[in-house]
């Protein structure tokens, strides 16, 4: 296990306007472990993932990823983390291949992996179609490819099963398994509790921006 990519959160809090999406969240996750994040809508799962990914700044508390602070060492955290967000992060007017190539360019990596990744997520045949023509499920697959392209040490997946067909569900499980085998730390937020419990090691339940329960995935009774 690569201990350097663990996550520590202490009293994380984040507000949107007057509402506190995260009120007080603390947890530790060892490097290489897989955590499933559950909770009702509006419980703060997305905000928690975004805070750890440094997409938003916490309004209280602190967090460290791989030892780097998410506020003061943001750049270092970003090099370790890849986020699969609700937003697809895609350019609708560009093709799938172009979207991934742009990511490769910004990472300073060669574009050679792009074709392989597109096949991996099942978009090989639609590689040169414009994203505007994609269904929601296909965009999700492309966003997945985007995450894999980054070769992260920490993968944060916000509702990875969302909008996918049964084949897509299998793809997600395969990918999570692969990431785990590589020693990548994974947190995924989901409502698919039973499915998630089979891939995850640990579980955390959020309610109204606070941790309601923390334990092993095997203990999650559906």
């Amino acid at each position: 296990m690569d201990a350097s990519a663990g996550i520590e959160a202490q009293n994380l809090a984040r507000r949107y306007g007057r509402r506190w999406a995260l009120a007080d969240v603390s947890f530790n996750l060892a490097g290489g472990a897989v955590l499933m994040l559950a909770g009702p809508n509006g419980s703060g799962k997305s905000t928690l993932l975004r805070t750890i990914a440094t997409a938003v700044r916490p309004d209280g508390g602190s967090a460290r990823v791989g030892g780097f602070d998410v506020v003061t060492e943001r750049e270092d955290v970003r090099k370790l983390v890849a986020l699969l967000s609700h937003a697809s992060y895609l350019y609708d007017s560009l093709t799938a291949r172009e979207n991934l190539s742009i990511v490769a360019d910004h990472l300073g990596r060669p574009r050679t992996n792009v074709a392989g990744l597109l096949d991996r997520v099942g978009l090989g045949r639609r590689a040169d179609d414009v994203v505007a023509t994609f269904s929601a499920g296909m965009r999700k697959r492309l966003s997945f490819a985007r995450v894999l392209l980054q070769e992260p040490r920490v993968a944060l997946l916000d509702e990875p099963y969302g909008q996918l067909d049964p084949e897509g569900f299998d793809l997600v499980d395969d990918v999570v398994r692969e990431l785990k085998a590589d020693g990548t730390t994974v947190i995924f937020a989901t409502h698919q509790l039973e499915r998630a419990a089979s891939s995850a090691d640990e579980a955390l339940l959020l309610e109204a921006g606070r941790v309601a329960w923390r334990g092993k995935a095997s203990e999650v009774a559906v």
């Binding site: 809090a13 507000r15 306007g17 007057r18 506190w20 009120a23 007080d24 969240v25 603390s26 209280g60 109204a208 921006g209 606070r210 941790v211 309601a212 329960w213 923390r214």
Partner: peptide
């Protein structure tokens, strides 16, 4: 007024 602190509650 706008920067109210989080409501009191219990955390695990």
């Amino acid at each position: 007024q706008e920067l109210v602190p989080p409501p009191v509650g219990e955390s695990v």
